[in-house]
């Protein structure tokens, strides 16, 4: 991108360049400021937060607040909630990818009765987000005894029309001759799927994983319903649970430390997968 400034048609020099940067810096500062405040609040003591003016620079309580959050928290240790969230987010994203890859494979490569009906049924679920079907889904999960369990957190959220649709579109761009060549080479359908289609879809899988991981991590309503045991809380809903009810005082430094901790895994996934994602794009062969 850097050399675009020299070769691009719109060349910015002098004041224009500085003004653009100034605008960008102000924008970044604007977005970043609340996060900074949360970080500051997680490194000071409770009295310092409640006494105006709010501190703007980090205090010396970093280690105390974070270790307290990680090991004991308020309802449940944050370490435990992070683990729950990680299991849920990985479960949802990997499950969604696996299911949608297979269903897209079925829809694109096999001619079975009702193929179009099934496709449109899957497509229709796009119109029914979790919130709309939450009561019956809860009923089903409860009857299966999945309350307060990882399977209850993960399975109801796995079916994904969006991902199925994405893979369907991708598979349709794969030339038919490739499937025929594999057939002549002696590959049975699942072999073709594993050996040819999966490696060809890996950039799509990586991109989708990033999106789905964040989707899973940020789930709020569903975990709130399905888990009552604090040891099964996920971190996003756990933060809300930390707010005191009634006259109790909120332990803001620990809550803020928890918030900061909750932000780290999605950031790591985005940054880590971005590299893989871009490498995938550069390597992509067609």
């Amino acid at each position: 991108m850097a050399h675009d400034a020299h070769t691009g048609m719109v060349e910015r020099r002098g004041a224009g360049l500085w003004l653009t940067h100034l605008g960008l810096i102000i924008g970044v500062a604007f977005i970043f400021f609340p996060i900074w405040l949360a970080f500051v609040a997680s490194t000071v003591t409770q009295p310092e937060i409640v006494r105006p003016p709010m501190p703007l620079w980090p205090g010396d309580q970093f280690y105390e607040n974070y270790s307290k959050a990680l090991t004991s928290g308020i309802n449940a240790p944050v370490a435990r909630m992070l683990l729950n969230s990680a299991i849920m987010a990985f479960g949802i994203s990997l499950g969604k990818i696996a299911i949608s890859l297979l269903s897209a494979f079925a829809i694109v490569y096999f001619r079975f009765p009702g193929r179009h009906v099934f496709f449109w049924l899957i497509f229709l679920t796009l119109m029914l987000p979790v919130e709309v079907r939450i009561v019956p889904t809860y009923e089903v999960a409860a009857n299966f005894g999945m309350l307060n369990s990882y399977s209850g957190l993960i399975f109801p959220l796995i079916a994904s029309a969006t991902a199925t649709f994405l893979f369907r579109q991708f598979f349709m761009t794969v030339p038919d001759e490739l499937a025929e060549a594999a057939r002549v080479d002696g590959a049975r359908p699942m072999r073709f799927f594993v050996d040819i289609l999966l490696p060809m879809s890996r950039t799509n899988i990586a991109a989708l994983f990033v999106i789905l991981f964040i989707y899973g991590w940020n789930q709020y309503l569903w975990p709130l319903l399905i888990t009552t045991d604090p040891s099964m809380n996920t971190i996003v809903m756990g933060i809300k649970q930390m707010f005191p009810s009634g006259d109790d005082t909120a332990d803001w430094p620990v809550i803020m430390a928890t918030s900061i901790l909750a932000m780290i895994p999605p950031v790591v996934v985005v940054i880590g997968m971005q590299k893989l994602f871009i490498r995938g794009l550069v390597d992509s062969e067609k």
């Binding site: 030339p175 001759e177 025929e180 060549a181 080479d185 590959a187 050996d195 490696p199």
Partner: peptide
């Protein structure tokens, strides 16, 4: 069979492309 668009497996090397049928 040799196809019009060659139908080579894009993610495999030349060697792997030729060996795939034998591997199966």
């Amino acid at each position: 069979m040799v196809f019009q668009n060659y139908a080579l497996y894009p993610h495999m090397s030349v060697e792997q492309n030729m060996a795939y049928g034998l591997k199966i």
